[in-house]
């Protein structure tokens, strides 16, 4: 489990960094899929198989396919990639990266004061379903309304 966690974590980090520094949209998308799949492996290692399956099916499957369809519709060619290379100047990265790195150092300092081990005891579909259709029923209904609103808004916005 521990080997699985650290390997998947390293893959996820490398793939995520490749997403934000890549200039080709489709390459970035494939790296993002790799990152999401390795996060799914991390969920397995943490004893959350249901979340891992949802991550693989909904995130890496549905949402990324949506992205891919839109990329095919837009048909961004070589000019966009050249523009992208022009925008990727190191001096633009210095400010944001410094500030965000400071935030990360602070957050890491706070987190490292804890000393608890994770015991990957599997939390299965049953426990989650009991919660989803018990105390969280209203949230599930609201999520369905949110998805409906997203559907209607996407249809309206993408219409000519």
């Amino acid at each position: 489990m521990i080997f699985l966690f650290y390997t998947a974590a390293i893959v996820a980090l490398i793939a995520t960094i490749a997403v934000i520094i890549s200039t080709n949209v489709v390459h970035a998308l494939v790296y993002l899929i790799i990152s999401l799949l390795s996060v799914a492996v991390i969920f397995f290692a943490l004893g959350a198989p249901f979340a891992a399956m949802l991550e693989a099916i909904v995130y890496a499957g549905a949402i990324m396919v949506l992205f891919l369809f839109v990329m095919m519709m837009l048909n961004l060619g070589q000019t966009t990639q050249d523009e992208e290379k022009e925008w990727m100047q190191p001096r633009l990265w210095i400010g944001p990266v410094t500030l965000v790195a400071l935030l990360l150092v602070q957050m890491t300092n706070v987190l490292l004061t804890q000393d608890v081990d994770l015991r990957p005891i599997e939390v299965g579909v049953l426990e989650i379903s009991v919660l989803l259709f018990g105390p969280w029923l209203l949230a599930v209904e609201l999520a369905s309304m949110l998805l409906l609103a997203g559907l209607v808004a996407a249809y309206h916005l993408a219409k000519k």
Binding site: M1, I2, F5, A9, A12, L13, T16, S35, V39, I42, A45, L46, L104, M107, T108, L111, L112, Q114, D115, V116, D117, L118, R119, P120
Partner: peptide, 14 residues
């Protein structure tokens, strides 16, 4: 076992 803070630090880095 995997230390708790390593999971959270990974989430923070992502």
């Amino acid at each position: 076992f995997i230390p708790y803070e390593h999971g959270l630090i990974l989430a923070a880095i992502l």
